[in-house]
Design a protein around this nucleic acid. Sequence first.
DNA 1: CAGTGAGCGAGCTTCCGCTTGACTT
Length: 950
Amino acid sequence: MATREKGATSGTSGTGRNPRRLVIVESPTKARKIAPYLGRDYVVEASVGHIRDLPRGAADVPAKYKGESWARLGVDVDHDFEALYVVSPDKRAKVTELKSLLKDADELFLATDPDREGEAIAWHLLETLKPKVPVRRMVFHEITESAIRAAANDTRELDNDLVDAQETRRILDRLYGYEVSPVLWKKVMPKLSAGRVQSVATRVVVSRERDRMAFRSAEYWDILAKLDAGEKASPRTFGARLVSVDGSRVAQGRDFGADGQLKSSSVTVIDEPYARRLAEALGGVDLVVSSAESKPYTRKPYPPFMTSTLQQEAGRKLRFTSERTMRIAQRLYENGYITYMRTDSTTLSESAINAARAQATDLYGAEYVHPTPRQFTRKVKNAQEAHEAIRPAGDVFATPGQLHSSLDTDEFRLYELIWQRTVASQMADARGTTLTLRIEGTAGTGEVCTFSASGRTITFAGFLKAYVESVDELAGGQSDDAESRLPALEEGQAVTATELEPDGHTTNPPARYTEASLIKALEEMGIGRPSTYASIIKTILDRGYVYKRGSALVPAWVAFAVVGLLEAHFGRLVDYDFTAAMEDDLDKIAEGQAQRGNWLSNFYFGGDVGAEGSVARSGGLKKMVGTRLEDIDAREVNSIKLFKDDEGRDVYVRVGRFGPYLERAVKDSSDGAAPDAVVSQRANLPDELPPDELTVEYAEKLFATPQEGRVLGVDPASGNEIVAKEGRFGPYVTEILPEPEAPQEDPAKPPAKKAAKKVAGPKPRTGSLLKSMSLETITLEDALRLLTLPRVVGNDPATGEEITAQNGRYGPYLKRGTDSRSLANEEQMFTVTLDEAVQIYSQPKQRGRQASTAPPLRELGKDSATDKPMVIKDGRFGPYVTDGETNASLRKGDEVESITDARASELLADRRARGPVAKKTTKKAAAKKAPAKKAAAKKAPAKKVAAKKA
DNA sequence: CAGTGAGCGAGCTTCCGCTTGACTT
């Protein structure tokens, strides 16, 4: 492991000839671009991003560290959080290449991006390449010949504080992700994940859905008037809306809260009957303009694109997903059409500003260009601004028309968008007028009614001629070039109403997030980086936390469970300000005002509340994870309380292994049940039912619908319908028996007893699917075959007992009285003959350890620790090494044929070191919750999923 | 959420942020 020393870089060398320099940048495209600027004394090569990282999992950890308690994390938390870095497998060839290039170089220039990650990449290069020649750090913000040459002549040393800040960020993310995710595996579902970025992203989406679920809509009315201003007016007619009655403002949507109630009492809510009466009473009355207010309208152009805004606009205008936008932008970048596409800066280089202005002048005329160059310095939270804005490449922009034949459709559309936005950014403000008219009249019933109309006329389009930003269709809103013309009326002028239409409205819940609006929200919180926006969406989709419905992101129920758990037990970690606070702390580290080790220690171990950072001041993560594991009740976490039904019973969504389902406690009405006994009533939830559509009424409907599986067809023999379902023990098929004749309802006598007896009648046949089958593909034929089980093989000639073949908990087996024998495969259940069965029974029962006394796959030498001989055996979980006492599975990369004694000893030592921890916790956990059921679940074999959340 | 007879060694899942091909279809 490497430690950092100050001043790892040093001055230039002084040989006679021109020194040869190896320059390493991050991107190959960049390397190609700057090489000509530097000339032949420079060799420019790309690192292609990071070359090393923390090990991804145990398999990536070098043998030397495998036994360490911290190997799982890749960070030695007990020794100043020293990080273990490994060269990423796909970068090994790159590292070799760089090393060989370095052999011919007299000097090394680390020209990675000028931001935190770039500084870290430079340091990793230094650590990995171990150059013997002088090393300099070269930084540039602009790729022009002069900027590159200047950068090569004005190098600096590596900024170790900045590298520290990056490493702190990296380690924090690792500790967060790799400590909290396992909590979810144990409490919710395996393979789930938590992380600083994805968990907040998920929380944001869930939180919006909760708002939608809690939302109560309100109804309100007003009157839409069509007014005539006389034949001289232009336009002659226009629309206006009733805004006040007798001086009291008429309620609008924004006057209502999410609960459907008025937020303030100073407004008047008009209901339908009143709106109709009023419209009637206003018929034919004199209307007069009571005020006409005109204001100038100006609009500045939008800043040039950065990654987030490009993704948002491409999403809205072109309906591209973030991923698609980035894929196309990457191609445009690589082929030299646009500048770098992963940026958080809106800055344009001087030459780009000139190019945009020249093009705007050409196309629209000088008056459409802003008098002075515009620079947009609006800073994004935590922006690092290592690159320019996204714009057409070069000192002269190619017009979309010029590129039409060299780009494909998607590329063209995206280029055009970027080009328009860039050119528009240097154009003049749009100017116009907004006019607000108020029109008054007294209704026949005496009320003084005021109507209002507002219009916008654009007198000078300016930049709007080139580019108008789209508005989010889910959120509503008005675009900047929307015009509505009103006649230029003055106070006192008379108008007449040609139509008075009562108009009803309802308030709407807040819109769901789209990819674009979620990225925008995250960006505003300073969460995520341009290079990760698209992958954040992918992560929460892949984990099943959200799914898409059109362009909307809908949270799955499992996201409610996960977010609920995190909020309740790891609140600080999903706090919206957590990342912002972290960034402040990282800045302090980068400035040398805080220490990486202290900060991480406070974050991980907690301890004294020092000056080392606000994020860290939340109690130690390690302890939190430890205590939470015992505190968190999995059943509670996975029960999402929805509402009370009509009888006051709580209705829950339970997140189970086979998907979410509805549940409530109802009175047990079965035969012989105690009067106050309660049973769970459950109902399946349709796939991808958006949570806010699950209303009380809909829940009742689901409870009333019998649960059904996929109908496969009708059994020709019995006439019964055959269905395939997912059950507690995995997928199975069963038959639907015809309904017993409905008992005659006798209101005087409850028919409970009779009905119960009928239900307990003949049981439907069932059969688990074979391993080779799946619910999606199983056919009626398969199902009928399964329902023939158990199959009578015959009677044992010796004892006369019946032998049957059937499928059980542990797979296929033969049964004769209470004596059983496993079958080798599932097919034998259908094919085994009586002779073969008798033969199998003639063998003693293989049980326990005897069953697994197969010959070892390979014999090894003696264990270095216990001096016992070691052998490799094949077990249920694959090959493992054993010394007769300790067993340890071979890991990824270990081969039965080639494993050495030393490695085998290491595995055994590792296993011993770990101790029987896992077993202890399972037992404890099992004992803690519903004892009876847990015991059964524990016994279930691994492949049949344990019903851990009953 | 169907319901049926044993007892054996776990190991893996997971984070965020930097970059492109090399694969497959």
